[in-house]
């Protein structure tokens, strides 16, 4: 029993970290643009495909396949996805900044369809699932007879590192300060002239590359990737960000951990829990929003009258 619990605790932390990274992107973008970028999950899940394609291209050009090619392709994918985010912002998302919330929502849902369909058409046999390798293999050490994989450690470590970097960036660099100012008070930010392209570019670059890391880790965790993984990734990341409180970085992390926790708990303790896990996750989302309409760590905004 202890072993099972321990094993599930490791799964929880791993999955929770990945969800937290996804939720961070939603929260960051919402904070700055006041727009839900619903296709953020789809953007994130392009990363595994870009990495696979990159590795194959490198192998084809430089000869035999090698782990180094994959590593290189993975890093390239993170940057490429960051750029995709910036382009999508400029082409589509930014235009919905002042539109009613639901317009932006529908537009980005449609954008998600476009991204998924593009993956399906551009990647060879894009409709099929594609195996994705464990980026880091092997067992690091045992805790009470339960093996802790290097992968789990890497996920947690990478998440902590990214969160730390993000925090430092937002608090120490001038552009980070401007992003925070913009997300704290949009009116003031606009009066101060902050709402220029650089803030948006920086936000989307960071959010999308962090999303790409999450997408790569998720594919690696699942061992497989598919063109429509982005739907669930988006729904879960969005839910985690909302549960935690949109615009709140700690909230996004807490939200990711809570959702992963519910999933793992359902799988462990409820008979047939695996098939009902999404029911539990979304029941929780509903419950949180009934009792805390602004999320757990979100500020309740008193409307100015």
């Amino acid at each position: 029993m202890t072993e099972l619990l321990l094993q599930q605790a490791i799964n929880w932390i791993t999955l929770g970290s990945i969800y937290a990274l996804l939720a961070l992107g939603f929260s960051l973008i919402f904070g700055v643009l006041n727009v839900i970028h619903f296709s953020h999950g789809d953007v994130a899940m392009t990363a595994p495909f870009i990495a696979l394609a990159g590795a194959q291209a490198l192998a084809a050009v430089l000869g035999a396949a090698a782990p180094a090619w994959l590593a290189l392709a993975v890093i390239a994918a993170v940057f490429a996805v960051g750029l995709i985010g910036v382009v999508l912002d400029k082409a589509v998302i930014r235009r919905f900044r002042d539109a009613p919330a639901m317009m932006a929502l529908v537009a980005t849902v449609a954008l998600g369809i476009v991204i998924r369909e593009l993956i399906r058409h551009l990647y060879p046999q894009g409709s099929n699932p594609h195996a994705f390798p464990r980026l880091i293999g092997g067992v690091a050490f045992d805790v009470a007879g339960v093996p802790v994989s290097w992968f789990a450690l890497a996920v947690v470590g990478l998440t902590a590192l990214l969160v730390g970097l993000l925090f430092g960036f937002l608090h120490l660099t001038p552009i980070g300060l401007r992003i925070r100012a913009a997300s704290q008070d949009r009116v003031v930010a606009r009066m101060m002239g902050i709402s220029d392209g650089r803030v948006f570019r920086a936000t989307f670059l960071m959010a999308s590359s962090i999303g790409a890391v999450a997408g790569l880790l998720f594919a690696s965790y699942a061992g497989v990737t598919r063109f429509d993984f982005g739907v669930m990734a988006g729904l879960i990341g969005f839910s985690a960000a909302v549960i935690g409180g949109l615009g709140s970085m700690p909230g996004a992390i807490v939200g990711g951990l809570i959702i992963a926790g519910i999933e793992v708990l359902a799988q462990t303790f409820v008979p047939e829990g695996a098939s009902y896990r999404l029911v539990f996750v979304f029941m929780l989302v509903i419950a949180v929003l009934i009792f805390r309409p602004a999320g757990l760590l979100g500020r309740t905004i008193l409307e100015k009258v």
Binding site: A101, V242, L278, F282, M283, I286
Partner: peptide
């Protein structure tokens, strides 16, 4: 709930 939050509640019901 309103706007985005409300949208998520309805999405959650749809998924459930």
């Amino acid at each position: 709930t309103r706007d985005t939050y409300l949208a998520l509640v309805t999405i959650a019901f749809a998924v459930v």
